[in-house]
Amino acid sequence: MTSKGTVVCKYWQRGCCNRYPCPFLHGGDNKWVRETKASNSNSRKTEKKEMVWRRTEEKEKEKERCLCKYFLHGHCKYGADRCRYLHAWSWSTGAHDFSLLTPLHGHSKPITAILQPSGSDKLLSSSEDGTVNFWDCHTGQCVLTLNFGTEIGCIMTDGPSSLFVGTRDSVKVYNTENNTLLSLSGPAGLVYALAAHDNKLFAGTQVWAKKDKGGMEVIYTHTEEHGVLALCETSDATGQSVLSCSVNDQTVRLYNLPSFLERGRIFAKKEVQALQTGPGGLFFTGDGTGDLKVWKW
């Protein structure tokens, strides 16, 4: 229970107390109250300064994780040591992270698909420039370029010698052993997806899903500020599942699964439309400039 003698008189504070003697504190007796108020005021100022400092520190950290736009075009006057923004094609949060092995230059337009057939030492990439490149996985050199003369939407292999190429209004079948080419007409528009099953080839220009009661349900939704272009699941050096998510701000966001804690980012000159995993911790990104990059956990 609070004693009256320790409480300041509210009428005295207003300058109109007419009680004598007053059971509450007056005058010099409330010195400790003024000191407490001053202490609280200083504390609030300190807290405010600390909040401003923390916000400033967070902004500076965010800047360090933003790609320097001048570095992007190759002419930052400050250089990597003095520039407050990032001079690298990626950043990550800690141990067991990924690194860029090598960029592969060979396409002149956006890359639409990346594929490494099982058991093959070749990496395949297709592009809107109408070409499919075969890359040697040991040297990183382009050993073969097939020019189909029209925009390519996707590629698929079926066996060691058959390459299926989705183009506008047709599917091309290329035999890598005897260098023969077969054209399958029928699709209307650019073929975006190919699949093979039971000696049948399926080609899709658009993919639709029908809602079915008792089927799959959404258990988690992660909202991206920017539109999603491509998704791909990989595993880091420890076996942790990581979701690679390409969005239309020219970055690829990497998230630990199932927590969705951000693991790192990959930057590109243009939007990354193709993502693919490979053996031995490899994964690949292909952007709108035609650059193909090889990454490794």
Rank of each mutant, 00 (worst) to 15 (best):
H226D: 14
E224M: 11
T234I: 15
V242N: 02
S235L: 01
T223Q: 14
S259M: 03
P258R: 01
A237P: 04
Y255Q: 01
S235N: 07
G239W: 01
V247Y: 07
T238L: 12
E225Q: 14
T221N: 09
E233N: 06
V252G: 03
T234S: 13
N256Y: 00
E225S: 14
V242Q: 00
Y220V: 05
A237T: 09
S244C: 15
L243D: 00
R253N: 08
E225N: 14
L254V: 01
E224C: 15
L231R: 08
D249Y: 13
L229S: 09
S259T: 14
E262S: 06
Y220K: 15
L231Y: 09
S259C: 05
L231M: 09
T251H: 09
R253L: 06
T234R: 07
E233V: 09
V247I: 15
I219L: 10
L229I: 11
L231K: 10
V228S: 11
E262H: 06
G239A: 05
L243S: 01
H226K: 12
S235A: 11
V252L: 10
T251F: 09
V247G: 06
L257E: 03
V228T: 13
T223R: 14
V228N: 11
E225W: 09
N248D: 15
T238Y: 05
L229T: 10
D249V: 11
D236F: 04
G239T: 02
V247P: 05
V242P: 00
T223I: 14
Q250T: 14
T234D: 05
I219N: 08
H222L: 11
L229K: 11
E225K: 13
L257S: 04
E225D: 13
L229Y: 10
L261C: 11
F260N: 02
S241C: 04
R253M: 05
A237H: 07
F260W: 14
I219M: 11
F260H: 06
Y255K: 04
L261R: 13
L231P: 07
H222V: 10
N248P: 02
N256L: 00
R253E: 02
E262M: 13
S246D: 02
D236T: 09
V247D: 04
E225Y: 11
H226Y: 12
G227E: 11
G227I: 07
L231I: 10
N248L: 04
G227C: 10
E225I: 09
D236E: 14
V252M: 07
E224W: 07
H226F: 13
L231H: 08
H222E: 10
C232Q: 13
S241Q: 07
S259W: 01
A237L: 08
A230R: 08
Q250A: 13
E233P: 05
A230V: 03
A230I: 03
F260V: 04
L254E: 00
E224H: 14
L231E: 08
S244D: 01
H226G: 05
S235K: 07
T238C: 14
I219E: 12
L243R: 00
A230E: 07
Y255F: 15
H222T: 06
T238W: 04
L231T: 12
R253S: 05
V247M: 07
D249F: 08
Y220R: 12
T251P: 08
P258A: 02
Y220G: 05
T223K: 15
V247N: 08
T238V: 12
G239P: 03
I219V: 15
L261M: 10
D236N: 15
G239I: 02
D249M: 12
Y220L: 13
Q240Y: 00
E262D: 06
C245P: 02
G239N: 05
